[in-house]
Nucleic acid binder design. Structure first.
Length: 473
RNA sequence: GCCCCUGUAGCUCAAUGGAUAGAGUACCUCACUCCUAACGAGGUGAUCCAGGUCCGAUUCCUGGUGGGGGCACCA
């Protein structure tokens, strides 16, 4: 939080100037850096070094700066670097230990209510490796928001309405008949996976009546999704059912509102949303059924009506075409479309035995989240996804993730952790946390490595706060 | 044809418009046999191409080119 403190402090001295607080590329260049001199130089038509000279005088004389920094320096070509003092670093350690897990908490997001929706896979098949990426990202971003004082709800949207649900029910029904020994035509457009047979068997054992199959099948799929995400250490605050939006009339209401605002045109017996570029997108098909788009517009409206200041959706890149349509619909209802943020993650390719594995739902060789977890474990799964930007078209190398060697960064980290614990276990009378802080001799901390660790620790709250704004988990 | 993402070291990835483009791994050299050698020190090695904006471009803009994905009465 030193970063935001520094920003505020300098802003109060130069209220009308835009500048950045940067992290220098090297420890030798200090802990924080400001590019103020570059901006002033332009305004005053002088060189950055000249502009910087006056700033140094101003900063060095400041008592509050003196408490934290041992050195404030102007370097070519015009950066001003701030060096945290060793005393400050050492005493910070006491604070950090006292705060424990609360260290890094802030109120940066106070009063901001966020609906964070992720995974939201169709309940017609098992969660996939791609869903695992969304799960890792969404869960961690949610944790970050909690630390920064945002009020966040992690939500999973269940598409329990539509043709795909009917297909699932039909698939289960046919497999049940098959298990009873009947000959059935199992169409290619039905769900081929083994899980359908498992559910069919379960339903036969429980004597599920034919009319209950659709609802029970959804229930069963959701239970599977819940179990998979839990195995990954991900817990959702809310499982939101699309059917609720239909029952409450919210979908119809959203449509009526769009119509009254003049955003809907009727053509060929269907209703379309007017797009800004002159295009149109279907809201209600000519058979009277509503599209995914209209349902999603109603769903987003519902989120805002629940009091969320913003809605963040994590989607797979294959849905990128829907982004503009949904935003257009939300804007047509009178909401600021920027309150809806859609983060796209690129798709995941699996690498096994040095070769890319092509996944196909129909062939039934989808790599499921459960398989992945069973093979490599949740720590490795989460680590691999989080260490890559959402925009990378990543390859998940299963063999590498399982490898117990230093080539595998996850294993490396776990090994280091294990070594540390083994060192602690050799210390006699080792107590942690320490009960009496006054007995701690901070002067023992003087090695370069120790100070570097302290710097990283002190920066941690800054990192957390930055992520809550840029989502770079 | 149009839209989104992307091209950085042999490989997998970093770099909020900032400083000498960083890590890990692989590879090379050296050292090391009492806290786990799954170790230590050092080194080789990269921004797809061509323009442009800027004090400053891996980052922004334009054009090209390679790769992934999507294109609407489909979810």
């Amino acid at each position: 939080m030193i970063k935001s403190w520094l920003k505020e402090k300098i802003s109060s001295k130069f209220p009308d100037i835009e500048f950045d607080i940067l992290t220098p590329p090297d420890d030798k260049m200090g802990d924080y850096s400001v590019n103020l001199a570059f901006i002033l130089a332009k305004r005053e038509k002088t060189s950055p070094m000249n502009a910087g000279k006056n700033l140094i005088g101003e900063f060095s004389g400041d008592k509050e700066f003196g408490k934290k920094f041992s050195k404030i320096e102007l370097v070519p070509s015009g950066f001003i670097n701030f060096y945290l003092s060793k005393d400050f670093l050492k005493t910070s350690l006491l604070e950090i230990v006292k705060e424990g897990e609360k260290f890094g908490d802030s109120e940066a997001g106070k009063g901001i209510k966020i609906n964070l929706e992720f995974v939201s896979a169709n309940p017609t098949g098992p969660l996939t490796v791609g869903n695992a990426r969304a799960a890792s990202f969404g869960d961690t971003l949610g944790n970050i928001f909690k630390k920064t004082g945002h009020e966040v709800t992690k939500e999973y949207y269940v598409n329990d309405v539509g043709v795909q649900v009917k297909k699932l029910a039909e698939s289960v029904r046919l497999r049940m008949l098959e298990l009873k020994g009947e000959r059935v035509e199992f169409g290619e457009d039905l769900y081929q996976g083994e899980y359908v047979k498992e559910i069919a068997k379960e339903f036969l054992d429980k004597n599920v009546a034919e009319k209950d199959i659709p609802a029970q099948a959804i229930k069963s799929m959701i239970a599977r999704a819940q179990s998979s995400t839990e195995k990954m250490g991900v817990e959702f605050d809310e499982w939101f059912y699309e059917s609720g939006l239909h029952k409450s009339g919210e979908v119809k209401q959203a449509l009526a509102e769009l119509e009254s605002r003049g955003s809907v045109i009727e053509e060929d017996g269907a209703k379309w949303l007017k797009m800004n570029d002159g295009q149109k997108a279907v809201l209600v098909k000519s058979d009277g059924s509503t599209t995914y788009l209209l349902n999603d517009i109603a769903y987003t409206k519902n989120k805002f009506e629940r009091g969320f200041t913003s809605a963040i959706n994590v989607w797979g890149a294959d849905h990128h075409g829907d982004v503009v349509r949904l935003k257009t619909g939300v804007a047509a209802l009178g909401y600021d479309p920027d309150r809806l943020e859609i983060l796209l993650h690129q798709l995941v390719a699996l690498k096994k035995g040095g070769e890319l594995v092509r996944m196909s739902k129909r062939k039934g060789n989808i790599e499921t989240l459960d398989d992945l977890l069973a093979e490599v474990g949740k720590d490795a799964v989460r680590f691999f996804f989080l260490t890559r930007d959402l925009n990378t078209h990543m390859e998940f190398d299963i063999d590498l993730a399982k490898k117990q060697s230093k080539e595998n960064p996850v294993f490396y980290i776990q090994y280091a952790y294990s070594r540390l614990n083994s060192i602690f276990s050799r210390i006699s009378n080792f107590q942690f946390p320490v009960s009496n802080y006054s007995k701690i001799n901070l002067n023992l901390l003087k090695k370069e490595e120790e100070l570097r660790l302290l710097r990283d620790l002190v920066r941690f709250p800054d990192v957390v706060e930055d992520i809550s704004g840029n989502y770079q988990v």
